[in-house]
Amino acid sequence: MASDGVVVEIGKVTGSVGTTVEIPVYFRGVPSKGIANCDFVFRYDPNVLEIIGIDPGDIIVDPNPTKSFDTAIYPDRKIIVFLFAEDSGTGAYAITKDGVFAKIRATVKSSAPGYITFDEVGGFADNDLVEQKVSFIDGGVNVGNATPTKGATPTNTATPTK
């Protein structure tokens, strides 16, 4: 695992066909100046998982989280898009600690492993708008004895992609 920078880890949970599971997305290594904004994309298989919603985690402190935390689910493109932009203008609602960034709610549709993997990152910046190093650890849903650990090695991303 990367020793510096922010680590975004997609949790690994267990479920069975027809059940709804909650998959946490963790941030670790949050910089001392916090995270003022970030955007990134995960990939998944809508034939295996139906993403039914995404909720902000406990490290989102904006009293009205829909102003700073936004997501979009595109089953036709097989992606989930995340956007966080601190909304106070003063840094008061920045992410300042490690913990759960988001909770992905999904219904298991198939007995195949439900991988959720890193696809791309736009950027991560602290309260001074300084770009942060970030790496990703894939996860998803274990169905029966299947284990979604494909790509469990962190993917280092030093520069934003478009």
Score class of each variant (00 low, 15 high):
R77W: 15
T14W: 01
P63W: 12
V13S: 12
K109N: 11
P56V: 11
V30M: 02
G99T: 10
K12F: 15
Y93T: 14
D70T: 12
P154S: 11
D87H: 15
V81E: 01
G91C: 04
E120P: 00
N142H: 10
V100K: 13
G140W: 06
D87M: 15
T107Q: 09
T155D: 06
P113Q: 04
D128L: 04
D126N: 14
V25I: 09
I104S: 04
K103F: 11
T161Y: 12
K109W: 06
P63D: 14
I104C: 09
G57R: 15
D70R: 01
R77C: 01
S3H: 05
G114H: 09
A36M: 01
S32Q: 07
D128C: 04
K97V: 11
A112E: 08
G89Q: 01
T14F: 12
A146S: 09
S88I: 03
E9T: 07
V134G: 02
Y44D: 05
D126V: 01
G99L: 11
A85S: 03
P65A: 11
P160K: 15
G140S: 13
N145S: 09
S110V: 11
R77P: 12
G114Q: 05
K150D: 07
T14K: 12
G11Y: 04
V134N: 04
Y115V: 11
V6F: 15
T90C: 11
G91H: 03
G122A: 00
Y26Q: 05
E86L: 01
C38S: 08
V21I: 07
Y115D: 07
C38G: 14
V8W: 01
R77Q: 06
A146G: 07
K150I: 08
D119I: 05
V25P: 03
I23E: 14
T153D: 12
Y26D: 03
F82A: 01
F27T: 11
A92F: 08
S111Y: 03
D4T: 06
V134C: 06
N47S: 07
A158F: 09
R43K: 10
G89T: 03
M1I: 13
A102T: 10
V6E: 11
Y93A: 14
P148K: 05
I35H: 02
E22N: 07
I52D: 05
P65C: 07
Y26W: 01
T153F: 15
K103Q: 10
D4V: 07
I95Y: 03
D76P: 06
A92D: 13
R43Y: 14
G34R: 05
V108E: 09
S111Q: 08
S16T: 07
P154M: 08
T20E: 07
V134Q: 03
T107R: 13
R28E: 03
V7P: 10
I73W: 04
A102Y: 15
G29C: 02
D138Q: 13
I35D: 04
G114W: 04
E120Y: 03
K78W: 02
Y93N: 10
K33Q: 03
A85W: 10
A158L: 10
D58R: 12
D87I: 14
T157A: 09
S135Q: 12
F124M: 03
T20N: 07
N127I: 02
I10C: 07
F40Q: 03
F124D: 00
I51E: 02
Q132V: 06
V6N: 11
L83S: 01
T149S: 10
P148C: 08
D58S: 10
D58I: 12
F84D: 03
V25W: 06
A106F: 12
K33A: 11
D70P: 03
D55L: 05
D70L: 15
V8I: 14
S110N: 05
I116Q: 12
N127T: 02
V141P: 13
D98M: 07
D98L: 11
K133F: 08
I52A: 08
V100S: 13
T147K: 12
D4G: 04
A85Y: 15
N142K: 08
R28M: 04
F69A: 06
R43L: 09
F82V: 02
A112S: 08
T159G: 09
E50K: 15
S111M: 03
I104A: 08
N47I: 04
N64Y: 12
G151A: 12
S111F: 11
S88V: 02
S111P: 09
Y93L: 11
S110A: 14
G122D: 00
G11S: 08
Q132T: 09
T147G: 10
D87P: 15
A2S: 14
F101A: 07
V143L: 12
T19L: 10
D98C: 06
K33L: 07
D39S: 01
K133W: 13
A94R: 08
G91Y: 10
R43H: 05
K97I: 14
V130E: 07
E131M: 02
S16E: 15
G122E: 00
S32Y: 10
V143D: 14
V17D: 13
A112N: 05
A112Y: 04
V100T: 09
T155G: 09
Y74C: 00
E86R: 00
G89H: 01
D62T: 15
G5E: 07
D119P: 01
V25T: 06
F84K: 01
A125I: 00
K97C: 05
S68Q: 09
I116T: 10
A36D: 01
D138F: 06
V30S: 14
S32N: 06
K103W: 13
T66C: 11
F40G: 01
R43W: 02
G91A: 14
A92T: 10
I137M: 08
T107Y: 10
P160H: 14
P148H: 03
K67C: 06
F101E: 03
R43N: 15
S3C: 03
F69S: 07
Y74P: 00
A92V: 07
F40P: 00
T96C: 04
V21A: 06
F42M: 03
D39W: 01
N127W: 01
F136L: 03
N156D: 09
K109T: 10
P65S: 14
Y26R: 11
T107D: 10
I10E: 05
L49S: 02
S32T: 10
G11H: 08
V130F: 09
R43P: 03
I79W: 14
I35K: 01
V134R: 03
I52N: 06
D58E: 15
Y74H: 02
Q132M: 03
V7I: 15
R105W: 05
Y115C: 06
S111K: 15
V134S: 08
D45V: 05
V81Y: 01
T157L: 11
K162R: 05
N156P: 13
A146E: 13
C38Q: 01
G5F: 06
F84E: 06
D70N: 15
A112D: 12
I104H: 05
Y93F: 08
V81S: 00
G99Q: 14
T149Q: 09
L83T: 00
V7T: 08
K109S: 08
A152E: 10
